[in-house]
Design a protein around this nucleic acid. Structure first.
Lengths: 230, 230
DNA sequence: ATATTATTTTAGCTTTATCTAAATAATATT
DNA sequence: AATATTATTTAGATAAAGCTAAAATAATAT
């Protein structure tokens, strides 16, 4: 006889529902307590009418709390579900980069498809195969199978002072264009950097990368690079 | 300037359409020239009415020839498309068994989902990563990117004579139950076998496996094991 | 306090993939 | 050859996920 100390939640979402839940979860992580229909609409690139429809469904399946006209909150169950999708997405990203030699700016779309494959054992084995990675190629933390995330304290590069140093651990903007730019200048995840100078006038910075190369970047670029300070 | 010597066929099927095309292709490989609606219906576990509907769509996209009430044939384009789905399915099966330590009877359902991921580069890289395998874990050949398959001449085990030997290269019935049975008795893909005796009465066989173990099997089981004769 | 604007929802339509029930074509039987 | 049976298709319905247009509600501006 085997008594389990937790209750297995049996929620089954379609791929479309999973994508909306993920969007709501991500938006809810960006500060605001409740997420609006329009926010979700522009995130998902669908019309607000479609969002309203979907919110009704997600509320029925109890992954969000939904008060008409007032916006939504993710429930505890919703959070757990969203974190499992994010876990799958990021594990596949690690696989694509480390095993299949994808560049870090090529992985998002494919991972977006792979994350919806329904097989708990597949993800468990993939995780094991990859050596239980804690961070994805963009430096974002990978939730464990219980939804726990190991967050690293990190700072936008533009907030470092002259002579401060650290390691690039993530990027805020992970658009392909931005990632390609970083690749080009050699500012990859894991690179050791040091701020050599900051220009008062426009906030641009002079950076030393891996004790070898110096490069200049605008404040806007630096604001999108997250650093683990040393 | 670059002139290509072939025309890229731009057909786009939904996952459901891909599954039907695959079923039609597989059935058409089993001898008969044209495939009937009922055959597809029982293969797909959907109603004949749904099949008729789908055949109309597949004919519109020119992957099958369809004459009402007479059944269907796969077109050249259809064949190419079907072989690419099969290629993806089998490459994923190799990945699951060789890299993620799945048993060969656990891979089918997951591969069934993975085969629909739309990314040519993903499959190219996966193939490379796996070392361009030519056969899947059940011994079935993996078509190359042009749809060419390296078939191995093979014989059902029950058709071997006493003292004939060979190597198990594939199974006809790849149901989980059958594969588990084979695993249990140690008759895996690649095993070297020799027919020690055949019982006239019921056609059952006594087999030597890997020069070590002998086992008895019914004619029905033997008929589902394909052997590369030596 | 009311009018205007912005946001959100509802109602009704479309497409895809399924179904059931009814109609039609092909085949088999007497 | 006429009829019965089986196979296949058509017609009409449903559920999911989107859309547009219109209505309802909330927020804001006068």
């Amino acid at each position: 006889m085997c008594f389990q100390s937790y209750i297995v939640i049996m929620i089954r979402l379609t791929s479309a529902e999973e994508n909306y839940l993920k969007a709501v979860y991500h938006l809810s992580q960006e500060g605001k307590t409740t997420v609006s229909t329009n926010d979700i609409s522009s995130e998902m690139k669908t019309k607000p009418a479609s969002v309203s429809d979907m919110l009704r469904k997600l509320a029925e399946k109890e992954v969000i709390d939904y008060r008409k006209y007032y916006g939504v909150n993710v429930t505890e169950n919703g959070k757990k579900y969203a974190l499992q999708i994010i876990r799958k997405h990021r594990l596949w990203e690690v696989f694509l980069v480390e095993k299949l030699r994808f560049a870090w700016d090529e992985v998002h779309e494919v991972a977006e498809e792979l994350e919806h494959i329904k097989s708990p054992i597949l993800i468990q084995r993939l995780d094991e195969y990859l050596g239980h990675p804690k961070f994805d190629p963009h430096g974002d933390p990978i939730p464990d199978e219980y939804g726990d995330v190991k967050a690293r304290p990190r700072l936008p590069l533009n907030e470092l002072a002259i002579n401060d140093g650290g390691q690039i651990v993530a990027v805020k903007d992970s658009s392909a264009a931005f990632l390609r730019y970083l690749d080009k200048v050699g500012a990859y995840i894991g690179a050791r950097i040091k701020v050599l100078d900051k220009v008062e006038f426009d906030g641009s910075l002079e950076i030393l990368v891996d004790n070898k190369k110096t490069l200049f970047m605008s404040k806007d670029v630096a604001a999108n690079i997250l650093v683990l300070q040393q």
